[in-house]
Write a protein that binds this DNA or RNA. Structure first.
Lengths: 198, 198
DNA sequence: GTCTATAAGATGATAGAC
DNA sequence: GTCTATCATCTTATAGAC
């Protein structure tokens, strides 16, 4: 049985609409039927759309950050941690053709309220920072081999996976996401690349 | 001195708004002041927003396809052709913080009129097909070295560059795009060719 | 907390005059 | 081709009753 509070229900529904349609393509009216209360009542919980957008972005960032902690606790090697990360985004894509909240809001960036923009920038920063750390440790441990700095590769990985979600959705081919993720991680583990570095 | 027709002017302004704000975040009203005619007049040229969106997408796809031909004519090696391609998107980003029309519309995909969706899918297909061909020929010529199929790497490259545009814009750091592009192309270049470049 | 009622403005589009 | 006028609807709220 669902014991979820109204505010959480609103966030759940609104987040799904952000992920499928984008920030500018959903309205309080869209939430009405799905949540089961009137738009005026939704405004009670989230006075403005900026408040709602900020809450969605903050909650999602917290969620992903908690996944980082989980992957570090459960997986010992860098390749496994990267696979978990790629798998997280893949599950988002698979579950209702959704896009990562961070990636979708990044596409809406120019039109977002300032507070939401700040959250989006922070989300990207969190992701890239974690990826860079995993990459750095993985290279130090000899589990990964790559040229350049962990930071550059981190932003490349993040960009590629987020972009792949859009591409997969627009081509109706989720396999495109999976193959992109596998190529990226596979290349980082490749002996050929390892050999090149010596 | 005039030269540019009204329809073209409308397309120019509307395209810029698509690239900066997205399909759902601009209106005929936004075009009014910038084009210098009333919304009713814009409806004369493009009866519905779907017509306008389709025209923007088609024209942009033609433009990019013409660039493919140009790069093949002007550049002989695969790395150079890829650098030109990455440079094209970089110029889009640098010129007014714009996003590639294809990438931005891919982010709006679920809310697009069917005709525009079809154009977006075709745009992605065109880009991936050209990239796959360049990659395949480059590997055959010994200019590039990579694991996996040209097709998988093509979709990875496209996803990464499109994603990097969003990331660059949301972080206010265009350098992120450039470094991503350089890492990707640099990684593909064989040790032999890479050594020759120094 | 949720409702009805209402508001001001935006939006996509059409009719008909010039 | 461009205009004014008008439209039905949507959007983001706010006020006040229950």
């Amino acid at each position: 049985m669902q014991v979820t509070g109204t505010a959480t229900q609103i966030l759940d529904v609104a987040q799904e609409l952000v992920q499928t349609r984008g920030y500018n393509a959903f309205s309080y009216k869209d939430l009405e039927a799905r949540v089961g209360i009137r738009t005026a009542s939704i405004h009670y919980h989230f006075p403005t759309k900026a408040d709602l957008g900020t809450a969605i972005a903050k909650r999602y960032r917290d969620f992903v950050n908690s996944k980082f902690a989980e992957y570090e606790a459960k997986e010992v090697t860098a390749p496994k941690r990267l696979q978990r990360y790629a798998g997280l985004l893949e599950s988002v894509l698979t579950k209702g053709n959704r896009i990562c909240v961070g990636g979708m809001l990044a596409s809406d960036y120019a039109t977002l309220p300032l507070e939401v923009q700040t959250e989006v920038s922070a989300f990207i920063h969190d992701n890239e920072r974690w990826l860079a750390r995993v990459l750095k440790e993985g290279r130090a441990a000899g589990e990964l081999a790559f040229d350049g700095t962990p930071e550059v590769l981190a932003t490349t990985l993040f960009s590629a996976l987020e972009g792949a979600m859009f591409v997969a959705r627009s081509t109706g081919d989720h396999g495109r996401y999976r193959r992109t993720a596998e190529w990226l991680i596979g290349t980082l583990m490749s002996p050929r690349v390892a050999a090149r570095r010596r």
